[in-house]
Design a protein around this nucleic acid. Structure first.
Lengths: 244, 244
DNA sequence: CCAAAAGTGTTTTGGGTACACCCATGA
DNA sequence: TCATGGGTGTACCCAAAACACTTTTGG
């Protein structure tokens, strides 16, 4: 009862307000402990894992629907968000996992249930500040948790492929400053930025070359030095320049 | 009557076989007379111009639907095809142009007609051999014609924006050999290849630099010389190497 | 003073650009 | 032989890669 008006809950009583057969699935990336993380939902009682997703209201723009999903799952607004691909294979049309979820939750299961139809899914990639996120499960989920991108649980349908496509997109856009800007703190050392790039690309980078390249890109400004308390030279702090 | 079984005709009697609210629109590029061309439909009696598009059958993969549209409009199979973006703004939800089309064609116009609902459209880019294409209008169209990409008629809804996005995608992938491979003849001179690049990028390129770059890419093989009958040295013919 | 991390300098390489120059051809 | 388009060689610039070297810090 008390959950019905929460914006983080789907209103199953009125599926009719959503466009049928279309969903938006979000690959939400965070960075913590030198690991690239992805937010994954686990449906109640069912052991089914999935990407956070949602449906498009009939009076809502596609991008806004993705934004809404993002805000509902993370509690954040003004998130960096990017559509990267739309998935519409027939293999993804498998009502079994969702049927399991409905049954385990004592929901009525008719063959024509909104959730059991074929869906075409628009994939969105989001970059968020790990520390600011408060993951919130949706109505059907027990948990909404961060997983290491290299160690995800088995995901339903083609969600693993969606993640792979998102990763590929992320890697091919690694030189876009928005990536570091959204995954790191406001200020960071060159080593931290390099470690982020290495984690995303899954390869070692040459330290001095990386340093030079970053400075040549003119997108960083150097601030004061950071006292690390470690037995070595203290690094400078850097910050992404504000867009000119 | 005799048209009903043509695969190039939509079967309006059974809209129910299609997924509602989703369409695939194709930006079909050809190259002719040193101009980049796009295939555009003109709806019957209505002066409404649009990109070739279609709907997704409930038992059909999204990519296959785009392929089908391509084949129906061009008569070609095995076309180079690439999904590039999905359009779902609310501004594109304007039933007026389609209402006009229906009225002009004496079709019943109810507010809940399949064609008058809000559509989210998946944009596909296709590259075809201009000379091999036999453009075929669909059931609602008077014509399916090539237009210069820089001189299109006014298109309905956001189709102009879809074209611009496709052009941007094409330009950012200009170094992918599939572009020349699909828009030019089997063999071509370096000058012809350069002219194609210049047309797509809408800028002059340096002749010798272009030559060197193409040869360094290792994707071309040089064949015999071409007799042009012109008053100058006869150019070599080139061909894209088959994938290794 | 040593180890470890951070920062800078130097050299080489390779692609991109610019331009000079040569080649082939038909008028 | 001349104009024109096609092909090649050379010089220059700049960014990326590789490596040497210096600087800073706590132990």
């Amino acid at each position: 009862m008390e959950q019905q008006n929460k914006s983080s809950q789907l209103p199953p009583s009125d599926w009719n307000q959503y466009m049928p057969g279309i969903s938006a699935d979000c690959v939400i990336f965070g960075y913590h402990d030198k690991e690239l993380k992805i937010l994954i939902l686990e449906y109640k009682q069912s052991g089914v894992f999935a990407l956070p997703g949602g449906f498009i209201r009939k009076d809502e723009a596609l991008d806004d629907a993705a934004k809404r999903v993002l805000e509902e799952r993370t509690g954040l607004t003004r998130i960096y968000l990017n559509q990267f691909h739309t998935f519409g294979n027939l293999e993804r049309d498998d009502p079994k996992p969702m049927k399991t979820v409905l049954e385990k939750n004592d929901m009525p299961v008719s063959d024509h249930h909104f959730l059991l139809q074929r869906f075409i899914s628009v994939g969105y990639l989001a970059l968020v500040d790990f520390k600011k996120v408060e993951p919130k499960p949706d109505l059907f989920s027990d948990s909404c948790l961060w997983y290491d991108a290299n160690n995800l649980p088995g995901l339903m349908l083609d969600h693993q492929q969606i993640v792979q496509t998102a990763l590929k997109y992320l890697r091919s856009n690694i030189n876009n400053h928005v990536i570091g800007q959204n995954l790191l703190d406001e200020t960071f050392t060159m080593g931290e930025l390099q470690k982020l790039h290495e984690t995303i690309l899954d390869e070692k980078l040459h330290r001095t070359g990386f340093h030079r390249k970053m400075m040549l890109s003119k997108s960083l400004e150097r601030l004061g030095k950071k006292k690390t308390g470690k037995a070595h030279r203290s690094p400078f702090l850097y910050r992404f320049k504000q867009k000119v």
